[in-house]
């Protein structure tokens, strides 16, 4: 895959996984390839010093393969990997435990869309955050967004 796409993936993954470094250290040195089967692209990466880093093309410990759509559905948490795996839409070859470990780390990340608000000057931050939180709850905006994405990415 081209270096820009790899850099974007690596950057985003490290952002999401920033707090999970201690868990990632346990996978130190392991190499993974994600193959986007319908696009014919492969993304090689590895765990280096508790972070995701680009890896050279070559031998890997784990191979993950799926269509672009399905991989997006996984990344957006619209599907769980077991579901796609049962349906034969996800391939996992090599050291299964790396895949399971990584999946569990990802699942444990509490995605916080409002993190930037925290940097607002106190006491503004918490108040705005509360307001937004409440607004989301009342309008169910998160569920709606979820449903829209789900429909857009129907297999």
């Amino acid at each position: 895959m081209d270096p820009v796409a790899t850099a974007i993936f690596v950057g985003m993954a490290n952002r999401v996984l920033a707090k999970r470094q201690p868990d990632l250290v346990r996978l130190e040195g392991r190499r993974v390839v994600i193959e986007v089967s319908d696009l014919g692209k492969s993304l090689y990466w590895m765990i280096r010093r508790g972070r995701i880093a680009p890896a050279p093309v070559g031998a890997v410990d784990l191979r993950i393969a799926g269509s672009a759509k399905d991989l997006c559905r996984l990344a957006l948490r619209l599907d769980d990997p077991d579901t796609l795996f049962f349906a034969r839409r996800l391939v996992l070859e090599g050291e299964t435990s790396i895949g399971l470990h990584f999946k569990n780390i990802l699942d444990s990340v509490d995605l916080d869309w409002f993190a930037p608000i925290r940097y607002l000057p106190a006491p503004l931050g918490p108040r705005i955050r509360q307001t937004i939180d409440r607004a989301i709850r009342i309008t169910q905006a998160d569920r709606r967004l979820h449903d829209i994405l789900d429909r857009a990415l129907q297999p």
């Binding site: 391939v91 299964t96 435990s97």
Partner: peptide, 14 residues
Amino acid sequence: PAESVRWEETALGR
């Protein structure tokens, strides 16, 4: 346990 599990995609299937 995951460390005992291996999947392989072959010509005959998974």
